[in-house]
Simulated scan of single mutants.
Amino acid sequence: MKILFLQYPACSTCQKAKKWLTENNIEFTNRLIVEENPTVEELKVWISRSGLPIKKFFNTSGLVYKELKLSEKLPSMSEEEQIALLATNGKLVKRPLAVTEHLVLVDFKSDEWEKLK
């Protein structure tokens, strides 16, 4: 199973997830989410594959989210607008992300990530 691991190196949750992947001998391709933002096309596929609402893909505790006052703006935005916004800045995207052909995991919860084994 090929795994794309999207992370931000300064994020402690991303560090835990990367450590977990390594300790469990799970091979992955590392992608820095700020240097290489997810595209609109990728996000559409990943959101669909994850089964989660778009809101779960937003980093609601991040500075960019707060500066843009997105908690007020998102409810009136269409899904297309929200996805386009996510694609503009990797720091808006909840991380880490583990993406496979059949599965997308958002945030790190080791019990959920067991599905990657």
Rank of each mutant, 00 (worst) to 15 (best):
M1D: 14
M1T: 09
K2V: 11
L4C: 06
F5R: 08
F5M: 11
P9N: 10
P9V: 09
P9E: 06
S12V: 11
S12W: 05
S12R: 14
K16L: 11
K18F: 09
L21F: 01
L21N: 02
E23P: 00
N24I: 03
N25R: 09
N25K: 13
I26Q: 05
E27P: 00
F28D: 07
F28L: 12
T29E: 14
L32V: 15
I33L: 15
V34Y: 13
E35N: 12
E36A: 15
N37V: 03
T39R: 05
V40N: 10
E41I: 06
E41H: 04
E42I: 03
E42M: 12
K44G: 03
R49A: 06
L52D: 09
L52E: 14
I54K: 01
F58V: 02
N59S: 12
T60F: 03
V64F: 02
V64Y: 03
Y65A: 06
Y65T: 02
E67N: 14
E67F: 03
K69N: 15
E72M: 12
S76G: 03
S78G: 07
E79H: 13
E80S: 12
E81K: 15
I83E: 02
I83A: 05
L85V: 07
L85F: 07
L86A: 13
T88D: 02
N89D: 09
G90K: 08
K91S: 11
K91W: 11
L92V: 01
K94M: 15
P96H: 07
A98S: 13
T100N: 12
T100L: 10
E101G: 04
L105E: 04
L105N: 02
L105C: 06
V106R: 09
V106I: 15
F108N: 01
S110N: 08
W113L: 07
W113I: 08
E114T: 13
E114H: 04
K115T: 02
K115N: 02
L116E: 01
L116H: 08
